[in-house]
Structures are given as structure tokens and as C-alpha cells.
Design a protein around this nucleic acid. Structure first.
Lengths: 337, 337
DNA sequence: ATGAAAGCGCTAACAC
DNA sequence: GTGTTAGCGCTTTCAT
């Protein structure tokens, strides 16, 4: 039978409330009493029951990370971030649960329900590619500290962390331009996704800044998968055979594209230069090592966890923007200019 | 203020106990009473407090996935498995928490403490590369349903899921042999890790079966990282310049090796054939697509979750062995024989 | 079919 | 400094 403070109380001939005070280091317990309680606790193998404590406190120390249910392939960022978030949260005495919701079956209010039934201390929402979903209505009205990635939520209880997508796409394209390319294609993700619009505008900005010509046929949309990237590059090169470089909106598509191009006899970067986006940890071991924009998951994850603790502990909400960074690989050819 | 059954009871002019029965579909509630309770619950936005329920039931519906704390790079399997486990567990009414322990600071009994304080329903332990760690003593004596990956635990409450590593390494090496190679190197992971010993013995078995000569200098040990793989292949080719193929104990090292070889002017698979191990989802988009042994995370994850539910629901423990599978890429050259 | 009362393990307000 | 008492929200006897 699992021991409770009552058992300790009996053993020490004390009242349970005194035991509680002793265990929680509350003011007003004789040192020797505390000592005897501690010893009894160890002897009995006492472990506090968090459910009982929560019932009194009304809040627990559980933080929930909320993601749309999907495969690892679709969510590399989440998996990269989880350990870092977890680490920070733990140093603040929090523990982590995962809630994967089905985007197609999400019920209005599901989030509040989760928060309430588990007495959650806070949430971190990683919406992935979703920008227009019922869950955001719930986030807006939630009364529990909450951090949302990549989506702004105007609320007293919500902070948000953004990647500066426009900037990332801009420096990617600019890097290609700096290497002397003048015909630069773009393989984007789904056009209805907000980050894709933003990456598109970064690409445009760099092209226009450099007084290059922006052509519709230099842009194709795909689906962020490796397979999709392979198909997209073929379509793109058919439309615009004189491209010398392509900016691709995520590393997975970039890999799919390079793999496909190699198969078709192209040499990378000899024939076509490629820049990706994401900075997956495997990208540096790609053949050739991929030049990419590192969406700094480490920084974002730590920021997210710290921001959450900021709301919980000091009631401070914030909107943070993080600039991604160019990682130099070997997938861009320097043209003689 | 968060509504409780008491509020519902007042609204319906009933006793809280009747409300509880109505909400939980217990026998002996007049249909109209139940109806009025349900309506009141919706009207008030009632959400049950799991902590209170747990206090009565003694058990909750939380399952904990336990991993050593580390970066995503070191734990690709975990991240691949999490969504699948989570999905199965949810269909059984369970929710998932994550517990990342620090292997260097793990205290004896930490696991039991976690289980008790959270009233966990069960655990799934993914020990990664660790085979000899204090946590296994705790797992052995735990009295809560538990599934452990890759490590056998002799206990009434524990099931284990194993990958047949020997078999995997065997079919990898055999595949290379089938393609006509006779000088086949092996880049293994750290020699003190059990799965490495197993993969080693699979490699040996295939070499010996084919009456090829097993040479010490054809094997090098590295650290499962991409960087390590790049260094290892150089060392290996210096020791054994006449190798035509290499079996590499994980995909990340394989990528590092291929990347390095390409940089050095080798062509893959023209000059050197490579087979990896893991079947990471990015491997199929590698250049060239990597021939690898797919450690079927999907099957393992689902098996693990189902096994856990098997212990919880039917008290059935099992020891399951899963055979990995050869994935055909384009990184092995067929030699004319 | 419903109500009354007790109790899960813990903490807090108030006595002493 | 410590005991007493009440109560967190829920379920479960046991009455009625």
C-alpha cells in the first residue's frame, strides 16, 4: 500500500498537517520534528500524490505541448524543439505532456477542456502549417498562459514566437544573387499557407532589389515533401530551362529535388545551384552539403519555454521575432561575373 | 469560476452523487434526469477535474514515455515513434506525458516516484543506446505496466520489443554480397553498445556464410554521428584501400561518409557502395537514395503501445521481436560476376 | 431512482 | 510549534 502523510503522521506521532508543513518546508516546524518526518518519509518510501495536491492548489505543474497529429516527417521542427523545451521547463519545476489533436475533428473548446480537466499550468502550441483553424479561436479566449509559434494571438495570456520568414527567404535568394546568378527559380510550399506567402515575398524582394526580372514561370508550388520536391524541380525546369539556381522552401523538398536531378544526370551545384530552408541536422551531411536557411529550432524552443515561464511567473506576455540564419553548404556554385 | 458537479446539482435540484452517476452513465438514473444533467453540464461548460477523479480511482489515464534527455539528432527513432504511440494510446483513452531523465543524474527510484506521484497508468521506456543503467533496476521492480524497447526485462509487469539487429546486419551484408562484392567493410557504432555487438555479429555471419575473409582492418568503430561517419570512412579506406563496399551501422554516419567521399572525388556507388541502417525518412531522398535497413519504427511504435495496453487491459506480458527490412536505394553497385 | 455521508491525500485557516 | 477542522471535486457505499 502506498504510504500517505497519514502514515508518516502515525509513525512520528504527529498530526498530518504538521507532516505536511514539515515536508513542504513551511515556517514553524521544530527542526527535530522536521528531521523525524523526513526520516520517516524515506523509511516508508513516501511519494506525494500530485492529484491530491492539485485538488487543493487548483493548479498542477504540468505544461502541455500541443501539436496537430501527424507523422514525424511533417513536423521535423516539433521534434527538434521538444527536448529543448522540456529541459527549460524542467528547470522551472514543470513537467511536460503532449497533446496531439486531429485537425479534422477538433471540437471548439477542446483546448479549454484539456486545460481544465488536467489543471494545466500552461500550453505551448506548435500549429505546424496551420494558420486558419478553430483552435486559434480557443487560444484567443484561453485564460491559461500560452505560447504560440508562428501565429500572433492578441490576448493577455499569450505570447508568440515568430521566425522572420520574409528575411530568411530574402537572404537565401540574396546569397544566390551574390554568387552571380541572375535566373533564379523558387519552389514554394502550398500557396495557401502563410509562411509560404512570407517566403514568397522575401524571394520577390531580393529579386526586385537586384533589378532582376520576376517571372511567373520561375515559381512552382509543391507540398513540402521530398517526393513533391523531385516532381516540382522537373516541372520548373521544363517551364524555365535556363534557370541556374533554385531556392526551395524546405530542405526535404530540396533533397528530393537534388536526388531527382542527380538521377536525371544533372550535377549539383555544377548545373543547378540549390538553397533550402529549415537547416535540418541531416542537411549538413547531404551530398552535396546543403546551403540552407537555418530556422533556429534551438533558439525558438528555448525562447518558447522561457516565454511561457515568463507569463506564468511574471505575467509578462511578449511577441518575439527570431531571424533565421544562412548556413553555408556546397550546393551553390559561384558564377564568374 | 470553474463549474463542478455541485453547480450542476444545484441547477438541477439534485444531489451531486446523482449528477455523478448521470454523467458517468451509471445504472439507475431516470432518463429524463440524465437528460437534464447533460443539458446543465453543457450550459455551465462543465469539465470534470481529473485530479479529483484520480484521487478516488487511485489511477489516472496518463501514460508516460520515458527517454534519456538528449538532442533530436541522437534519438531519431524516438521522434519517429512518438506520434504513432500517441495515436494508439489515445484510442484506448490514454493521454501521453514525456519524461526525459538525465542519465548522469538518475537517482535510484526516480521512476517509481514518477509513477506514484502522477498515478501513471503505464510507461513506455525508450532507452536509446543505454543498456546498462540504474533505470533498468527500477524497471525490474516496478509494479505498473511497462514496455521497454530493445532491452529484455524479466518481470510480471514488463513487455519488451526488440529489433532483430543481427538479422538486419545480416541482410544488409548479404545484399552487398548478392551484388557481387567480396571486400566489404563495416563502420560500426561504439563497441560497448549492445546493438553494435549484434550488428557486428550479423555482419560476421554474412561474411562467413559467403566464405569471404573476415579481416580486422575492414571494421572501424565510430560514434553514430554524421561527422564521425565521414572520418571513419577515411580511416577505413586508408586501412583497407581495396574495399568496394561498406556497411555502415546507421544512416547518419552513412550520409556523413558519402558526403565526405564525394568531396574527396569518389563516386557513389560507382567507386564505393554503401548500405546504411535505420531507414530514416530522409534517406530515400539522399543523393544517391540510400540502400538501408529499415528499422520499422512504425511497427515498433504501434506494437509498443498495443503491448502496453495489453498489460493494462488483459494483464498480458510479451517479448516481441521485429525483423527489420531492406530498403532498396541506389547506393549499391551491381558488380559483374 | 435519488439522497446522505464518508473518504480519496493533501493543505490552509484557525485554535491552542 | 503543533493539533483541529474543514474543504478541494469526485465517487461510492448505504440508506431511503
Amino acid at each position: 500500500m502506498k504510504p500517505s502523510i497519514k502514515n508518516i503522521a502515525e509513525l512520528c506521532k504527529l498530526n498530518p498537517s504538521t507532516v505536511s508543513r514539515a515536508l513542504n518546508n513551511k515556517y514553524g516546524v521544530k527542526p527535530e520534528t522536521r528531521k523525524s518526518v523526513m526520516e520517516a518519509a524515506v523509511e516508508l518510501g513516501y511519494v506525494p500524490n500530485l492529484a491530491a495536491r492539485e485538488l487543493v492548489y487548483k493548479k498542477g505543474n504540468l505544461v502541455c505541448i500541443i501539436i496537430p497529429e501527424s507523422d514525424a516527417e511533417a513536423q521535423p521542427a516539433f521534434f527538434a524543439m521538444l527536448p529543448y523545451m522540456n529541459r527549460i521547463l524542467r528547470t522551472h519545476g514543470m513537467e511536460t505532456m503532449i497533446y496531439a489533436f486531429d485537425p479534422y475533428r477538433y471540437r471548439q473548446g477542446e483546448l479549454m477542456e484539456l486545460v481544465q480537466k488536467r489543471n494545466l499550468r500552461g500550453c505551448i502550441v506548435l500549429p505546424g502549417f496551420m494558420k486558419h483553424h478553430n483552435i486559434f479561436n480557443d487560444i484567443r479566449t484561453i485564460t491559461t498562459p500560452c505560447v504560440v509559434l508562428e501565429v500572433s494571438v492578441n490576448s493577455e495570456m499569450c505570447s508568440s514566437i515568430h521566425t522572420d520568414e520574409v528575411y530568411g527567404a530574402y537572404i537565401a535568394t540574396q546569397h544566390i544573387i551574390d554568387f552571380g546568378h541572375t535566373r533564379i527559380g523558387f519552389i514554394n510550399g502550398p500557396s495557401n499557407v502563410q509562411i509560404c506567402e512570407e517566403r514568397m515575398s522575401g524571394y520577390k524582394k531580393a529579386i526586385e532589389n537586384a533589378k532582376l526580372i520576376l517571372k511567373d514561370e520561375d515559381v512552382v508550388y509543391s507540398d513540402f515533401t521530398g517526393k513533391g520536391g523531385g516532381e516540382a524541380i522537373i516541372t520548373l525546369l521544363k517551364q524555365s530551362p535556363d534557370l541556374t539556381a533554385v531556392f526551395i522552401a524546405n530542405d526535404l523538398m530540396a533533397m528530393g529535388a537534388i536526388s531527382k536531378l542527380s538521377e536525371e544526370g544533372y550535377h549539383i551545384p555544377g548545373d543547378i545551384s540549390v538553397v533550402g530552408f529549415d537547416g535540418l541536422f541531416v542537411s549538413q551531411y547531404y551530398n552535396p552539403p546543403l546551403t540552407t536557411i537555418k530556422n533556429d529550432d534551438y533558439t525558438i524552443a528555448i525562447q518558447a519555454a522561457k516565454s511561457l515561464m515568463g507569463i506564468i511567473e511574471q505575467n509578462t506576455v511578449a511577441e518575439i521575432r527570431i531571424k533565421p540564419e544562412l548556413i553555408y553548404g556546397k550546393s551553390v556554385k559561384r558564377l564568374t561575373t
